[in-house]
């Protein structure tokens, strides 16, 4: 993305336009995508810089101010210990977004890699798909407990407590959620590689590497993008489940999933407490979804021309 903007100043003068410029044009013309982009950037910038600007500390307890509704001092109210919900939403978003995006990216990369290899190379198919079956069958909870037991202390020692936990959490979510993407991508690749254009490309001696990057990957992009949207929601929720097991950040460290879970008990008395984290997660997922839609349209040359 940065490359596009860097070259944009002199790009219009050159005769052959960079194809990414076309993509960006198409993306811009997609209303939903632009709206999603704006919302998403607002959320990202908010959670990045918000905690520095907002004067409340998310862990500071003001017990006299507990269970308050929204007010000027506390725009989203306070929780049962008098902590400022807005501050907790901002710093919780940092963790949730970071974990959600990274874990999603990890699971997409692994899933796509395995899926493409298995679908494209018949020799690898059996082994890779049986491995996928194995991972699908592993019981999640005991597996996570084993991961905590084996790696938590070692990772904390190497990367510091917070870095270690982040790596642990992201890889735990990543390695337990890539299988669906892999199966879907493989299915599509199996069908794709028998298509005429692939046969044509192969007949002129295109090497496998270029076949995959040029012809196969662009055509399996849409299920990958759907997996990405669903993957973010999944990762944000799974993160909260991990912190209950003791795998996540310390208990006073807020995240969206955790805020949502903690406030379900107060659904009747203080419904706004559930709404804020629920809204934040839904908005993030929706905006990523619309961006994905826009990106898919923009990358499809058949649509781009229209």
């Amino acid at each position: 993305m940065t490359e596009v903007t860097a070259t944009s100043a002199d790009a219009p003068k050159k005769a052959p336009r960079n194809q990414w410029w076309d993509v960006w044009d198409q993306f811009k013309s997609h209303k939903g995508a632009m709206l999603g982009f704006v919302v998403f950037m607002t959320i990202v910038l908010g959670v990045l810089f918000g905690p520095m600007l907002w004067h409340f500390d998310p862990t500071f307890i003001d017990i006299r101010a507990r269970n308050q509704g929204p007010s000027w001092a506390h725009p989203m109210g306070t929780d049962q210990l008098g902590r400022d919900t807005f501050a907790r939403m901002l710093s919780g978003g940092r963790v949730s977004l970071a974990v959600g995006m990274t874990a999603m990216a990890l699971s997409l990369v692994v899933g796509t890699f395995v899926g493409v290899l298995a679908g494209y190379f018949k020799r690898l198919d059996g082994l890779l798909m049986r491995t996928t079956d194995l991972f699908l069958a592993l019981p999640l909870l005991p597996l996570l407990l084993v991961i905590i037991m084996l790696f938590r202390d070692k990772l904390s020692a190497t990367f510091g407590p917070e870095g270690g936990i982040f790596i642990l959490m992201v890889s735990a979510i990543g390695i337990t959620s890539w299988m669906q993407t892999a199966r879907i991508v493989r299915g599509d690749v199996l069908a794709l590689k028998e298509r005429e254009f692939v046969l044509a490309a192969r007949s002129i001696g295109t090497p496998n590497r270029r076949m995959i990057t040029r012809h196969v990957l662009p055509n399996v992009l849409s299920p990958i993008l759907v997996s990405a949207t669903l993957g973010i929601a999944n990762a944000i929720i799974t993160e909260s489940a991990l912190s209950f097991l003791g795998l996540g950040f310390p208990p006073d460290f807020p995240t969206w999933g955790r805020l949502l879970f903690d406030s379900v008990d107060y659904l009747q008395q203080y419904p706004e407490r559930v709404i804020w984290p629920g809204l934040a997660i839904s908005l993030t997922v929706l905006s990523v979804n619309y961006m994905g839609d826009g990106l898919r349209d923009a990358l499809d040359p058949r649509i781009r021309g229209r």
Binding site: I61, I63, F244
Partner: peptide, 15 residues
């Protein structure tokens, strides 16, 4: 252990 009341206690006592 993980339990809503205990986590509230932890936060208060930490402060």
């Amino acid at each position: 252990s993980t339990n809503a009341v205990r986590q509230d206690f932890q936060a208060l006592i930490k402060q």
